[in-house]
Write a protein that binds this DNA or RNA. Structure first.
Length: 302
RNA sequence: GGUGCCAUAGCUCAGUUGGUAGAGCAAUGGACUGAAAAUCCAUGUGUCCUUGGUUCGAUCCCGAGUGGCACCA
């Protein structure tokens, strides 16, 4: 019998955690979080880390296991998850991965190309260049170093240009030569479950959850990390808006409203990404029984 | 009760020297391979409050009405 990874995806606030815990209990297994911000131990309230009861009821991996000060990326996530699966998968029950970080999920399910980790010095140098001279000189440089990627790149997006250049400069080879555009084979079967509901209902849930976070002490949590606000890990919905409030740029109420707005936008962006993935089987978050039946029907096939 | 100001997109407002209108936010669609809760791209028809008048033509000018705000009683 083949090992299986059940992947639960969906927009923020849809109720992935609740469904995953029921699935984990039903299949007697553990949960791997696929969330690029829940990995940070300093961020709990604003990233909706499950309550301690739930963390005790089912073992969770990759929650609050890094510091906001550490460098982290999708490839590191891929490796961490594969390591965990190696320890879980000798058992025959399926493992569960749940979260909303689209690129991280794809890194695990489809793989991510082999690239050297970005050298901090080169990144800072390029960032400084960009801030001082704008994007145009960097575009020209990219055109010279990697004409192939230049053809297909999003030339208005600084992050794309900068990263391609980083790789070109670090390796002396064009960035495009590392892009294989192939899906990696995994030694386990993947079943993707998507959760979604009516837009209006989803938005209501998101808005309410933000108010709940505020009640639980989101502003206090944000205050603790405020001195480190320039970190990439803190360029995050739920924190950046509160920093703007601490800076005196907006009121507390405006900050809360903007967190709600940006969370809704994030949910939409997630749905745009997940909609494209034809491997996902979609359910309402209330359909736990149906989801279990569906998974069991797939498991029985082999 | 009197006087003044305002009424335009879901919201805040701009504008049309009279030829039926546009910004920001919201909303919506899309892209995405080591910063991804990031970053980037695209999408603007709405009785221009109601009603009468002037006009070839009114959202714009004039009158009345309604509502809101401010000041004076």
């Amino acid at each position: 019998m083949k090992n299986t990874l059940i992947v639960v995806v969906g927009p923020t606030g849809i109720g992935k955690s609740a469904v995953s815990i029921k699935l984990a209990q039903h299949f007697s297994t553990e949960i791997i979080s696929a969330d690029s911000r829940q990995i940070y131990k300093e961020l709990a309230i604003g990233t909706a880390v499950p309550p301690t009861e739930d963390l005790h009821a089912v073992k969770h991996h990759l929650i609050q296991n890094h510091s906001i000060e550490e460098y982290y990326n999708a490839s590191m996530f891929e490796m961490e998850v594969l390591d965990i699966l190696n320890t879980l998968h000798p058992a025959t029950n399926p493992a569960i991965m749940t979260g909303g970080s689209m690129l991280y999920i794809d890194a695990v399910c489809k793989g991510i190309d082999d690239l050297p980790n970005v050298d901090a010095e080169i990144r800072n140098q390029l960032l400084t260049d960009f801030e001082e001279n704008g994007l145009e000189p960097l575009r020209i440089q990219l055109k010279q170093l990697d004409p192939d990627y230049y053809q297909q790149a999003d030339l208005k997006n600084p992050k794309r240009i900068l990263h391609a250049l980083e790789i070109c400069i670090m390796t002396g080879k064009p960035y495009s030569s590392f892009r294989t555009e192939t899906t990696k084979e995994r030694p386990f079967r993947i079943i993707k479950i998507g959760l979604n509901t009516e837009r209006e209902h989803l938005y209501k849930r998101i808005n309410q959850r933000v108010l709940q976070m505020v009640e639980q002490g989101l502003f206090e949590e944000a205050m603790k990390v405020y001195p480190m606000r320039q970190l990439n890990s803190l360029n995050t919905v739920g924190y950046k808006e509160i920093f703007a409030h601490f800076d005196g740029l907006i009121t507390r109420e405006q900050a809360i409203e903007q967190i709600q707005n940006n969370s809704r936008k994030y949910a939409r962006k997630q749905l745009t990404w997940f909609k494209k993935d034809s491997d996902i089987h979609w359910f309402e978050p209330t359909q736990t029984e149906e989801i279990i039946r569906f998974i069991e029907s797939v498991l029985e096939k082999e």
